[in-house]
Amino acid sequence: MINKKFKDTLSEVCSGPLVSVDIKILQVNVGYLCNMACKHCHANAGAERQEIMERENIEAVLRVLEETDINILDITGGAPEMNPYFTHLVREARRIGKHVMVRTNLTIFFEEGKEYLPEFYGNNSVEIIASLPFYMESEVDRVRGKGSFHKCAEALRKLNSLGYGAEESDKKLHLVYNPSGAFMSPPQETLEADYKRELFGRLGVSFNSLFTFLNMPVGRFRDYLIRSGNFEKYMGKLICAFNPETLEGLMCRHLINVGWDGRLYDCDFNQMLGLGVHSSRGQRIADFDYQELIKRTINVEEHCYGCTAGRGST
């Protein structure tokens, strides 16, 4: 079971390879530097990482946004806020009318020199996707390090005070759940109700939506699976849970991912595995060819079972 290739599974339900549908989002990983070292991180991000997107590639990203109809910039990392050109990227993208989403770990707000971030996000109408692996302190601190839950709680309260997370507010604040181990995610609707009840009850915190993601067998989480003897069972479970109905909505079919060094990928997981996009016109942001990329075949491997398991996880 564990050896069943994703391509073979795909060929049983599709007449051809997985191809791009459109490019609505430019997802940019601005570097693997991070103030945290979470156990589930697929990017192996941490304080020791040196990979940071330089100004040249930041400008190339902005050029692509300006010259195409791609309306959404999705900034990720690492802790993206640690890139020295981060605020420039956000401001310029907003200036040319693009919607900006940032994936933040929340604890970055308390690092020296980063205290401006909540107001900066509010002033630039940035949509915030914040990682919070659970609504209980013990679980969060176990995965992300001691004291992280309290920092997240304080950051969320600050964002709420700026208008983020209220139902009618245009300042959107979403939370992300990841399982704290080698098991599948709970149903999103049920867990969202738990998060809303518990976070409001315990901390007085509100947010808009909860996204439940699966941990991909990539990076630090893959190392954990192998080290703990859970790899085969976990992969077996993902393969058994393959759901062809998830294929239409897969994020890789609707975005292009840009690595810290300007290389193009189908998703952030492919980036970590070094699986570049299929394109005859070049594989870097500087060579971006919308018409070519919108027709591309998606590069799939075994980790793709993670995004196609059960209700899907993208």
Binding site: M136, P179, G181, P186, P187, T190, L191
Partner: peptide
């Protein structure tokens, strides 16, 4: 135990 975790419950 696994089922409980997959239903969104914690060790608590």
């Amino acid at each position: 135990t696994k089922s409980c975790l997959e239903e969104g419950m914690s060790l608590e």
